[in-house]
Design a protein around this nucleic acid. Structure first.
Lengths: 335, 335
DNA sequence: TTGAAAGCGATACCAT
DNA sequence: ATGGTATCGCTTTCAA
């Protein structure tokens, strides 16, 4: 393995100069710099990240914590983060904080706190207060995306507002019998988000003077399959039926649409469905939704951290991301 | 930041002993070990990964290269990899090799080769021969999952066989007019996989003496939306229609199902659809598919690398993963 | 503009 | 079982 000494020797300069030249620092004459670059290339020299990390205290790496890597929102944020990191020549260590418990704690201890990363992005995760304390005590820049964590600045849409907007749209179409498909408080996931969206739903209903039936406050656990099952059950049982469904995510809305189709209900004539996200497949489903842009949120979050690592003054405040109603074919007036 | 010296001092032992004790190495008396553990805990000491990486040459990190993080197959493998890594206390650096080109090369140079990782898993990526050479020259354990890379051992299903099995099932149902929805050779993605599946399709058709129409060899670029668009076009145009579609992935099959539904075709009466994967949502779509288990493939791949890092003799051969026909409601005899 | 040399914080070998 | 110490490869003053 060729080291910086090899390059220095071959170039007839000191390691200090090689280091400066290769990192683009000033105070290296152009000819020298070029020669060093050429030689490094020839020798296939690449600096050891451990060594430079140890010497400089910076790892050029950002940690990204997600509760799962198989849900659209998270992966889309992830791609946004990745884009920003790549442009800045940073690497990304991915922490899958799926389950609370032993493993989770180990991850925290062994890695997050191990000077392995220069900063941390938490996507849709929730932390215990002990965890939060640890994180903050490390002193690294930290930002949350997609689910407010108390005491941590955050990037994300206004969950109450978006739910309210969705519900109000259904109401404006003339719906009175609206079912809300919420999310479960899965372990380790951020739980304020579904709670806020539910509040937004309730607020809109109340403002319109519409009754909310307990049996129409269901949970799809943010899963299409679960949502479909829940709706199939509902459609199969006797009793009144909603004319519209507001789902906390497009993925759950997909499940609703599939259940409707498989139950012989026509959309939107028999049932209107609205979601949140504008998932990649929403257009294919003709799903009306409140679109947000997780990719941009990820990029922005990464950018904030990168700026601060470059010396920018830390921003303390959270950032509200945009959302927008996108009308497609899954909604219409009640028949 | 407390360092190993602080712990050594507080415990009244040498740094060597602290290091041994904390890493669970032999030759430390039980009382000493316990005392050190306690003190380290109290002081909140966590070893610097850069320092230990530099000294030991091992980073306890595995690199995972994916072409995209937003496709079911990749993320599912990723979760499998993650599970194995977590159990072994390894971290994961994620390389998004989305596009070939400048960035890609930089990622290669700056990170993969920077002794940043102890081993590498390539999921569904394709490498240029230059890239392959570089990778192999680093001498790290390396394994590919989900798309054969020449010269690199691989874990994955037999693509020709799985495509053949899917096609043969349709033929056995009585279908003669079968459309194949393949994948495009996106930049940077593994291209042998779609090619092999196409060969499997063609082989099955030929073996059954069935004609293959050029205009029924379509591409859905592994995307539901694209696939839906392609099929909507087909359904809207005059001319003969296939009675069955074999899609290279469930995600494309979803697009086909949505297009069929939106074109007023009944499944499976008017159109049978079969996919590959057993995607999370396949059951919700009632999609017949050839199921594979990417999670297990990921875990296995990680395990192979971890074993070798622990000194196990390297295995040179590839591993064939299983697949299995899963019949659901999207297939039936032609009407 | 360049070089010499002192760290950075662990690991691992060799003594004891 | 424990300690002393050279070493890993780079960064970063401080001098020249």
């Amino acid at each position: 393995m060729t080291s910086i000494d090899d390059v220095a020797r071959a170039a007839g300069v000191s390691t200090a100069t090689v280091s400066r030249a290769l990192r683009g620092l000033p105070n290296v004459s152009d000819p020298t710099r070029e020669r060093i670059h050429r030689i490094a290339e020839d020798l296939g020299y690449v600096a050891s990240s451990s060594a430079s990390g140890l010497a400089s205290g910076r790892t050029h790496t950002i940690g990204v914590a997600v509760p799962s890597v198989s849900r659209w929102f998270y992966t889309t944020v992830l791609e946004g983060v990745d884009a920003a990191l790549r442009a800045a020549n940073f690497d990304m260590i991915l922490y899958n904080l799926a389950s609370r418990g032993g493993d989770r704690e180990r991850v925290f201890h062994r890695s997050l706190l191990r000077k392995r990363t220069d900063a941390l992005i938490a996507i849709g995760v929730d932390f215990t207060s002990a965890e939060r304390e640890q994180l903050l005590s490390v002193g690294h820049p930290l930002i949350a995306i997609g689910g407010p964590v108390p005491g941590v600045r955050n990037i994300g849409i206004d969950d109450r507002a978006v739910a309210r907007a969705a519900t109000e749209y259904l109401i404006a179409l003339g719906h009175r019998d609206i079912l809300h498909l919420g999310g479960a408080d899965d372990e380790g996931l951020n739980k304020r988000m579904p709670a806020d969206r539910r509040l937004g739903f309730l607020a809109a209903m109340e403002a319109a003077g519409l009754p909310v039936r307990d049996e129409w406050l269901l949970t799809g656990r943010f899963s299409p399959i679960v949502s479909r099952g829940v709706m199939l059950d509902l459609f199969a049982s006797p009793g009144p039926r909603p004319t519209a469904v507001f789902a906390n995510s497009d993925e759950m809305a997909f499940g609703v649409l599939l259940a409707a189709q498989q139950s012989g209900l026509r959309v939107p004539d028999d049932l209107s469905v609205i979601g949140i996200d504008n998932h990649d497949m929403a257009a294919a489903f003709e799903l009306t939704t409140l679109a947000q842009d997780p990719h941009a949120q990820g990029t922005l979050g990464a950018q904030v951290l990168l700026d601060e690592l470059r010396g920018a003054p830390p921003r303390r405040s959270s950032i509200r991301a945009d959302f927008e109603l996108l009308v497609r074919g899954s909604t219409g007036p009640p028949r």
